[in-house]
Design a binder for these strands. Structure first.
Length: 224
DNA sequence: CTGGGGATGGGGCCC
DNA sequence: TGGGCCCCATCCCCA
């Protein structure tokens, strides 16, 4: 079986803290999924006890890297074509380059996450995503007024508004204004007749996911 | 206990 | 490739 040349332009090897998994060299231990739908911010407990979920299964599903299947079809004489097939989704390409391009666009994200954070166990498919994540550890954006540090400039900007009192996001239904767009969006829900989040058991609706969660945790649903 | 505002975090997308 | 922005989500606090 031919070996696919490394498509990565940026060799992970150059990024020393990064570990790289290969198809035959899976991660040594369960790694925390970054998804924690209910509790949100992953706690240390979650990090170590959360079982791998669908994502994990997807990893297994795509455990084998795309391989080249060269099929020689002979449909009656001179019509001989070579096909390069993606082992993951079985799409076929007439050229190797086509297969490579397909892999990058479609399959790579599931093949392996090659870039691991040196501060935690998160993994990313690209160096850019990893660098972005690392900022959440290094917190390079510091507020000159109070010294609080943030991972990204726009987070700092939002924070500075808490000092200045600037509220550029106004509600079109009332006179309220907000410093943050997300908070305006949450506020707009209070004007809406339709509440987006509904309790599965008692059908009560809530304007926010967090309120639904609080409702569920308060035990309403247990009683019913 | 509920509803809502304030503040913040992080991934993804676009330029 | 990096910055800016969007969107979603969450926690904290208070009425």
């Amino acid at each position: 079986m031919p070996v696919i040349p490394q498509p990565e332009v940026l060799s992970p090897v150059m990024y020393s803290p990064i570990t790289m998994w290969t198809a035959s060299d899976s991660p040594p231990s369960p790694l925390p999924t970054d998804l924690s739908p209910v509790s949100g911010y992953p706690s240390p407990k979650d990090s170590h006890e959360m079982p791998r979920s669908d994502e994990d299964e997807h990893e297994h599903e795509h455990e084998q890297p795309a391989s080249i299947t060269i099929t020689t079809t002979s449909t009656g004489g001179s019509d001989v074509t070579e096909k390069f097939r993606c082992a993951l989704c079985h799409k076929s390409y007439s050229t190797y380059a086509g297969l490579l391009k397909h892999k990058q666009l479609h399959c790579d994200a599931h093949v392996r996450k090659a870039f691991s954070c040196k501060y935690c166990e998160k993994e990313y498919v690209s160096l850019g995503a990893l660098k972005m994540h690392i900022r959440t550890h290094t917190l390079p954006c510091v507020c000159k007024l109070c010294g609080k540090a943030f991972s990204r400039p726009w987070l700092l900007q939002g924070h500075i508004r808490t000092h200045t009192g600037e509220k550029p996001f106004s509600c079109s239904h009332c006179s309220r204004a907000f410093a943050d767009r997300s908070n305006l969006r949450a506020h707009l829900q209070t004007h809406s007749d339709v509440k987006k989040y509904q309790c599965k058991n008692c059908s009560k609706t809530f304007s926010r996911m967090s309120l639904l969660h609080k409702h569920e945790e308060s035990g309403c649903c247990v009683a019913h």
